[in-house]
Amino acid sequence: MPHLSVRVVESDLAGNETALIRTLTDAVVAVYGEWARGTVDVHLVGVPPHRWGVGGVPAAAPSPAVTFGIRESVFGRPDADAIVARLVAGVTDAVVEVLGERVRAGVLVEFVATPAGRTGLGGAVVTS
């Protein structure tokens, strides 16, 4: 299950929640295929502007930051570099589609790999 946690300035997020969830899900499906649609989990976190700092001061207009939880095994595939590149481009394009071109240069997509057996769901360890 791909998990995307997106931190966005609250004023940019307000009213765009449904569109962001849809476009981010579509971006993941474009890489993995339609079978993945039901497994994409998107968390949107609105941050008040005075609680987002860069360089020791509140940021004027920060771009969204996306933490993408992914199975570690993906990085062992021969096509891992291509998959990562497609996900970065697709997720960035999805954010830009909803929030506008002004955010593109600063959109951060960070992958957090989880080894098999290191995730739990419903009280049980997920092994696959």
Rank of each mutant, 00 (worst) to 15 (best):
M1Q: 13
M1V: 15
M1R: 10
M1T: 15
P2W: 10
P2I: 11
H3T: 15
H3F: 12
S5F: 08
V9W: 11
E10Q: 13
E10I: 00
S11L: 06
S11Q: 14
S11K: 12
A14W: 00
A14L: 09
G15V: 03
E17K: 04
E17Q: 07
T18Q: 15
T18N: 14
A19T: 07
A19D: 13
A19E: 14
L20K: 12
I21Y: 13
R22N: 13
T23E: 15
T23Y: 12
T23G: 04
L24T: 02
T25W: 15
A27M: 12
A27F: 06
V28N: 14
V29A: 14
A30R: 09
V31D: 06
E34F: 02
E34W: 02
R37M: 05
R37Q: 02
G38R: 12
G38K: 09
D41L: 14
V42Y: 12
H43G: 12
L44G: 02
V45N: 11
V47G: 06
P49T: 07
P49I: 04
P49D: 14
H50R: 11
R51L: 15
W52T: 02
W52V: 08
G53R: 12
V54L: 14
G55S: 09
G55L: 04
G56L: 10
V57Y: 10
A59N: 02
A59Q: 02
A59P: 05
A60S: 10
A61D: 13
A61Y: 00
P62C: 03
P62T: 00
P62V: 02
S63I: 02
S63N: 03
P64A: 01
A65Q: 06
T67M: 11
T67N: 13
T67A: 12
T67W: 10
I70A: 13
R71N: 06
R71I: 03
R71E: 06
E72G: 03
S73G: 04
V74H: 05
V74W: 13
F75E: 05
R77V: 01
R77M: 10
P78L: 01
A80T: 05
V84Y: 05
V84M: 09
A85Q: 15
A85L: 05
R86D: 14
R86F: 06
R86C: 11
V88S: 14
A89S: 14
A89M: 07
A89E: 12
G90Q: 08
V91W: 05
V91G: 09
D93H: 06
D93Y: 08
D93F: 10
D93P: 07
A94L: 08
A94T: 03
V96E: 11
V96N: 09
V96F: 08
E97Q: 15
V98A: 01
V98I: 06
V98D: 09
V98F: 12
V98P: 05
L99G: 02
L99N: 06
G100V: 11
G100L: 07
R102F: 00
R102K: 14
V103G: 03
V103E: 01
V103L: 01
R104C: 01
A105F: 03
A105V: 06
A105K: 07
G106I: 10
V107E: 06
F111D: 09
F111Q: 07
T114R: 07
P115K: 04
A116C: 00
G117M: 00
G117K: 01
G117S: 04
R118C: 08
T119D: 09
G120F: 01
A124F: 05
V125Y: 00
V126W: 00
V126C: 04
